[in-house]
């Protein structure tokens, strides 16, 4: 079991607050991602049992949303929005620059396990693009220098 009793209890209590228990599945995936660092196939299988859905239905959610990963990523999840409004103000150039600064490509983790770099769909910060998200924090109105300064300050 990768989902321990405490986490399982939290998930099951959230299930009770939905008219359809499976409505709590997305939230459960967030809990698992936060606590275990990823939604492994073992965790997905255990969730499918808790929610009485087919395992592949959990996989559909995990692979649909950017928030979830099937393997552990770096300590800091850095994602750059490249949707249309951010793209129009240079998000793709920014992402390229960050790739160069970190020496990794999008989707990869730095060899020291410090930063995982990803691409993000719209985060609703269109007026302040380009922007990136690190964990729960938004960093807005970025240029490459500002972004690199933020990244370098990460431990």
């Amino acid at each position: 079991m990768v989902i321990d009793d405490a986490l399982r209890a939290r998930i099951e209590s959230e299930m009770r607050s939905f008219p359809e228990p499976r409505g709590a599945l997305l939230g459960a995936l967030h809990r698992v991602q936060e606590e275990l660092g990823c939604v492994s196939s073992e965790a997905a299988r255990e969730l499918s049992e808790i929610f009485a859905v087919f395992p592949v239905e959990v996989l559909e959610l995990v692979r649909f949303y950017n928030f979830f990963s099937e393997e552990p990523r770096g300590r800091h999840q850095v994602t750059v929005c490249t949707n249309l409004p951010c793209a129009l103000v240079g998000a793709n150039d920014l992402l390229c620059g960050i790739e160069g600064h970190l020496g990794i490509a999008v989707g990869e983790t730095t060899p020291d396990g410090r930063i995982h770099l990803g691409r993000e769909e719209c985060l609703g910060a269109c007026a302040n693009g380009p922007m990136m998200r690190i964990g729960g924090d938004y960093h807005e109105d970025l240029d490459l220098a500002a972004a690199c300064a933020v990244l370098d300050a990460l431990e």
């Binding site: 087919f54 559909e60 692979r63």
Partner: peptide, 9 residues
């Protein structure tokens, strides 16, 4: 049996 699903976007 539910073996198949659609993944990604």
């Amino acid at each position: 049996t539910g073996e198949l699903g659609v993944v990604e976007r």
